[in-house]
Design a protein around this nucleic acid. Structure first.
Lengths: 339, 339
DNA sequence: GTGAAAGCGCTAACAT
DNA sequence: ATGTTAGCGCTTTCAC
């Protein structure tokens, strides 16, 4: 049974190498002129002790933690999972660690997370959570960018061209012969671009829209029940569905299977997102793919630029920080067998 | 244009409240006796300044960061996404933040992440990455628990009862009339419990096994090509597949669709995992559900217990720290329409 | 009940 | 080319 030694620190290394702590620090950070002898001895002491610089101390001194807070609804949904994986990878390449927060769609949770991240002195925040009106965002001095959702005019927003995606999906359904396509989405509102695209195409075609809303945080089996109930209600009229996410498309397909109708002949379905995981699971699904990688890489670039320029985001939307228009990235149609 | 003020600190609050920093600290930490007047004045100063304690400084002093490193292959796959979401939630309830690392199946990445986490002085690590022989784990003094994979005898491991799951899936296929079920898995080995279950049942039935391996980190479209090729190769013999994850089951179903065979009459498929996301996307899939929540909650409990007891894991497998048997949790069959 | 001083582990400024 | 000093923001003795 060995005694429990504490982690070695800089001064332990210094002592062992017979130099001052400063010198060790210099070796570690490749700063200033050091004799090769010194470098070697320090390097050896480091190896022997298994020394590893304490980043907490460095952060305290350097005023930066090299940590980014990432706030998303939940990585258990493949879209957000893929987003977070992509963000984490990109951040890592730039030397930043990812502090993950799953708000689960609860606004209080998001506020709480935000407060914690500020306390942890993260260098920046990437938010894709789906709550509006979290006042702290607008007033924090920390660099923030958002994915998908818009937070405030002066906070950079990166997202797919949702309106074009909604149009693309709906046009496809009509082209393929659908007479009455319904929309299934998580939240219906004027700010829902996919819904706007759907409505625009139907308006042009003179077809009345049918919109059903089921929040994706609704727990099972309630969620499936709601979707099936909505479909049952319109079973006589509709012959196609544009679902604004692929999971909902799957749930709709299950309902169609239950009715015995043939897909795509008698009923057509188009999804949205086109994540890698869902492409693997349901390759037959026709869907609109979001350029997740492009979106995430751009968001990371923008955030890091703001951080490294020391550009704070300003004390609020009206303190002179310029509004930035959202960056929208083109979607692509993934042809499957359901439309 | 307001000037750019730095974050307020304890001494700012103290000054504003007309007390010493020590007193503010006491108010913050509810320690010792404070007059109500003092408490109120400090509280007010905190609000007015928007003060938020610097956790970095606290960590440096307190020797704990309240951060846990979570290393997984990638949260873009729903199983790991659900695991990470569950872990993060459980950790958060206990006051711990989650530092996310996606190793993407690369061993060097995992070693690198591990080193970083140690540098960040996380209080513990939960690892579910799929690389063997990362030596640092065994020798670190930090509490570690693993999910799914076994790392070393003295590191607690939490996982589904994979052998029972493999048996369950294979038995179901045979019961339903399959004559020649093949196995599709990510890595074939004697330590693959699902494979062991499959092989055991087939051995009992006197049926020769057919095992195909496609690493789930294989990029598309290569991965799909490999799976389809393996299926083509055995197309004449096999009439069922047990896929050790649901995404592969989906890819197999697509191949079956392409051959025109009917599911489940002419071809049966059983998956594995049964994540919430995939249940939504493919409710028709017959699969074996892992008790993800149980696994994760137990892992978190075990880790936090070790942390809070100050029980380090020891300097290695042979320094006297007791070996712990893996904790296995029962799986359940989810009846769908594919078997 | 409250304050002054020391120090967590590190690095930057200022020596020499 | 290397050492000394001070201090990042906080909490914890110890004093009063």
């Amino acid at each position: 049974m060995t005694r429990q030694p504490r982690e070695p620190r800089l001064s332990d290394v210094a002592e062992r190498a017979g130099v001052s702590p400063t010198t060790v620090s210099r070796v570690l950070n490749h700063r200033g002129y050091l004799s090769q002898t010194t470098k070697d001895r320090v390097a050896q002491a480091i190896t022997e002790l298994g020394y590893r610089p304490n980043q907490v101390a460095r952060s305290l001194l350097g005023q930066r933690t090299n940590m980014i807070g990432v706030i998303m609804p939940t990585v258990s949904l493949p879209f957000f999972g893929e987003v977070v994986a992509t963000l984490e990878h990109a951040l890592g390449r730039h030397g930043y660690r990812t502090l993950l927060c799953n708000s689960m769609g609860r606004a209080e949770a998001e506020s709480e997370y935000l407060a914690q991240l500020l306390g942890n002195r993260v260098d920046g925040i990437i938010s894709g959570a789906h709550n509006d009106s979290i006042p702290t965002y607008a007033t924090t001095r920390l660099p923030v960018v958002t994915i998908d959702r818009e937070l405030a005019p002066h906070i950079p927003n990166f997202r797919a061209d949702n309106v074009a995606g909604g149009r693309l999906a709906t046009e496809l359904l009509l082209e393929r012969g659908a007479r009455r396509p319904a929309l299934f989405t998580s939240r219906s509102s004027a700010r829902n671009g996919r819904e706007r695209g759907y409505r625009a195409v139907l308006a042009d075609a003179g077809i009345p829209p049918i919109v059903s809303t089921v929040e994706f945080h609704t727990p099972e089996p309630e969620r499936t029940r709601l979707i099936h109930a909505a479909l049952d209600q319109h079973a006589g009229e509709i012959d196609a569905v544009f679902a604004t996410d692929d999971l909902t498309a799957g749930t709709v397909l299950e309902w169609v299977r239950g009715t015995g109708r043939r897909v795509p002949e008698a009923f057509k379905v188009v999804g949205f997102d086109g994540t890698e995981a869902i492409r693997r699971a349901m390759p037959w699904l026709t869907t609109v793919r979001q350029p997740i990688e492009q979106i995430c890489l751009s968001a990371v670039d923008a955030l890091l630029e703001r951080i490294e320029q020391g550009v704070p985001q300003g004390g609020g939307p009206d303190d002179g920080s310029a509004p930035v228009p959202p960056m929208e990235f083109p979607v692509t149609l993934v042809e499957g067998a359901t439309a």
